[in-house]
Design a protein around this nucleic acid. Structure first.
Lengths: 149, 149
DNA sequence: CAGGAATGTTAGTTATGACTAACATTTTGT
DNA sequence: ACAAAATGTTAGTCATAACTAACATTCCTG
C-alpha cells in the first residue's frame, strides 16, 4: 500500500466517508462489513479505503477494530452528506423526480458539483418549498406582519 | 490493447465522442492532435481511445488518418452533446450561474444524470425562459386569446 | 524532391480502485 | 472454554485510463 500526497478527496473516498457516517448513525463507530454492504463493495476494498482515510487523518484505524472519525474526518463527512441532501432535495422538490431517482443521482453528483451550484440549489429548494406552503395556506402567511412578497 | 465486451460507454469515452464532434465541427473529421488539445490529454491517450471507439463501431479508424464518425457514433455523440447543452442551459438560465461554471459542471454531470432528470431540466429551462419573455413583454402575451395566467 | 517539422503510434509505466482466495482474529453459542 | 461462525486482513490480480520516451509516417517548404 503506497500513499501519495494529494489534498483532494476522490469520489470514492467521499463515498466511504459518507458510508461511515450513515452506518455509524450517531454511535460514531462503523464496522467494516456494514460499510461494505452499504456501498456494495467487497470487504477488502473497505480495508484499503479505511487505511487511506486513516493516513489522511480522517478516521482512526486499528486492525480488527471499529472505524471512528477524527474531528477533521467528521466535519468532512458532514459536508459531503450535506451536499448530498441539498442535491437530493433539489431533484425531488424542485424537479419533482421520485425519491429513488433523486437519491441515486445525488450519490453521483455530490462529488462533482461545485459550491456555487450547490448553494443555488439550496436556495431554490427553499424558495420552492416556501411557495408551496404559501399556495397551500395563503391566509396564514399573508397575515404575517411585514412578510416579504 | 485488449477489448472487453461492455455496452455502456464510460465517461471518458463519451468525452472523446463529444470532443470529436466539437473538433470536427461540421467537417465530420477530426485530427488526433486537436482532440488531444480539446480534452487536455496527451496524444497517445487519444490513439488508445479512438481504437476503442472504433472497436465499438462508433468511429472509423485508419492509422495516420483522420477520425470520422459512423452513423451510430454520430448519433451517440449527438445525444451526449444534447445532454451537455440541456444541463448547461439549466445551470445558467434556471440557477443563474455564470457560463464558465455551468460549462465545467455540465462536462462532468452529463455522464451521470439519467433521462428523467435531464428531461425535467429541459422542461424547466424552457419554462423559465418563457416566463422571462413574458415578464419583459407582458402585453403581447396578455392579449393572446384564452392565455392561461 | 529531400529533409525537417508536424503528426500519429507503440511500448512500457503508473495510479486508482475494484476483485478473489486464503489466512488471521474476534465473537458467540452451547 | 472452546469450536464454529462472523468479521477483518493480506497478497495477488485485473480493468481503466492516464502518462513519457522513442519510433513511424505524413506534410510542407526551400
Amino acid at each position: 500500500m503506497v500513499f501519495r500526497k494529494n489534498n483532494v478527496l476522490s469520489a470514492s473516498q467521499e463515498d466511504y466517508l459518507e458510508a461511515i457516517l450513515n452506518v455509524a448513525d450517531g454511535s460514531g463507530m462503523a464496522r467494516s462489513t456494514d460499510i461494505a454492504v452499504s456501498l456494495g463493495v467487497a470487504k477488502p476494498s473497505v480495508t484499503g479505503a479505511i487505511k487511506l482515510l486513516a493516513h489522511r487523518g480522517l478516521v482512526n484505524y486499528k486492525p480488527y477494530g471499529c472505524v471512528t472519525f477524527t474531528q477533521k474526518g467528521f466535519s468532512q463527512a458532514g459536508r459531503v452528506a450535506q451536499r448530498h441532501e441539498i442535491i437530493k432535495s433539489f431533484f425531488m422538490d424542485v424537479l419533482g423526480v421520485d425519491a429513488a431517482v433523486a437519491q441515486k443521482a445525488a450519490c453521483k453528483a455530490e462529488h462533482l458539483l461545485g459550491p456555487v451550484i450547490i448553494s443555488r440549489m439550496r436556495d431554490f429548494t427553499n424558495l420552492t418549498k416556501r411557495n408551496a406552503r404559501r399556495r397551500r395556506n395563503p391566509t396564514r402567511i399573508a397575515k404575517v406582519k411585514g412578510a416579504k412578497r
